[in-house]
Design a protein around this nucleic acid. Sequence first.
DNA 1: GTACCGATGTTCT
DNA 2: GAACATCGGTACC
Length: 196
Amino acid sequence: MKLGLEFYKQDALSLAKNLIGKILVRKINEKVIKCKIVETESYIGPEDKACHAYNNRRTNRTEVMFWEGGHAYVYLIYGMYNCLNIVAGERDKPEAVLIRALEPLNEFEFLKENRKIKSNKLKDLTNGPGKLCRALNITKDLNGYDLVNGDELYILDNLEDVHIVSAKRINIDYAEEYKDKLWRFYIKDNAFVSKK
DNA sequence: GTACCGATGTTCT
DNA sequence: GAACATCGGTACC
């Protein structure tokens, strides 16, 4: 069953944990690509120095984080890669959950064609935030997309039991006392997690 | 296996 | 002009 508005209205920390194990669905033309979410990170403005919306910084880029939960926040990083976030919580509270890694469940050939890399390992297709966006053709066109009412990108519930562990977030050394927060979550021993 | 490096563009100082 | 929530290739163990 598709996750509804109430699910996305929880705070980013709970949402990051509760998104683990859920099924991300990407519809492109007639293809319906399904992937299990195996790794996430919380970004909680205005207090979090690692968050783009730290100190309530509200710009064209961060605007979507201020929207109601259930929207996609997609931004460009290092000039080459897009990153997909799920906006959490209430309107005017800038919180989001970064999707860091996915486990593909179908359409493996489609994902591989999008990635254009030498590796033949399935896990190399989606074990990082920039990689999974390229594999699923997620670009800034989807920034602000409505995951509750849209059908090109949405998330399905999954009742499967998962063993979640928490860890420090990745590559935010500039965030001072917030860099060591255990705001990253992933499925223990899952091969598709980006970093142990 | 690890280490380094370049690619690339938007945002903010 | 610098920084940046990254990645893939190459070089070397």
